[in-house]
């Protein structure tokens, strides 16, 4: 059943892909026999055939994810989206401290250990990646302001 639903969603996406390939992509002028639309057209047709086969003969019964696990997964995805959104505005250090601590807490670490882990990941990670390896990580406006105050 889960197989059919997933294949159905993919089917709809592929139909949309095919419609765009057959209707909207076209080059204003071209010298080659195959334009930019031909390849996506071929792909979409074969993909649709595969999907029909899967819809016809599905082989995975269910997702087999219980409610608690599903909730944990959703929460994890939500945490990562928030982490991604905060990455630039508040900077690597603060966003990583929050993300690290919350994730560790959610996955079963004690409150104290999660806090220590978050702080270590945020500060240690920044020192290691930005200072030692010279990678480009966002400082965040807050930290920038603090650094400027310290500098002047």
């Amino acid at each position: 059943m889960a197989d059919r639903i997933f294949a159905g969603v993919l089917f709809l996406a592929t139909v949309a892909y095919a419609i765009i390939a057959f209707v909207s992509i076209s080059a204003p002028f071209q010298y080659d026999p195959l334009g930019p639309e031909s390849w996506p057209q071929i792909l979409s047709v074969i993909a649709l055939l595969c999907l029909i086969h899967i819809l016809w003969k599905p082989d995975v019964e269910g997702l087999e994810v219980n409610r608690a696990t599903a909730f944990r997964l959703l929460f994890m995805v939500a945490l990562m989206i928030v982490y991604a959104e905060l990455y630039e505005p508040v900077g690597f250090i603060i966003s990583t401290i929050l993300f690290g601590a919350l994730t560790a807490r959610m996955l079963g670490a004690t409150l104290k250990h999660s806090a220590i882990f978050g702080l270590a990941a945020g500060i240690g990670g920044y020192l290691l990646c930005a200072i030692l390896l010279d990678l480009n990580l966002p400082e965040g406006e807050l930290v920038e302001a603090l650094l400027e105050m310290g500098g002047t």
Binding site: M80, A84, Y87, A104, A109, N136, L137
Partner: peptide, 25 residues
């Protein structure tokens, strides 16, 4: 290494890697 530290560590490493390519959130 317990899973509850490993998982956030992987996410943090992956984000560092992806962000440093072009710096696009």
């Amino acid at each position: 290494i317990p899973q509850h530290y490993l998982t956030p560590m992987i996410a943090i490493l992956a984000f560092v890697g992806i962000y440093t390519i072009v710096g696009n959130p």
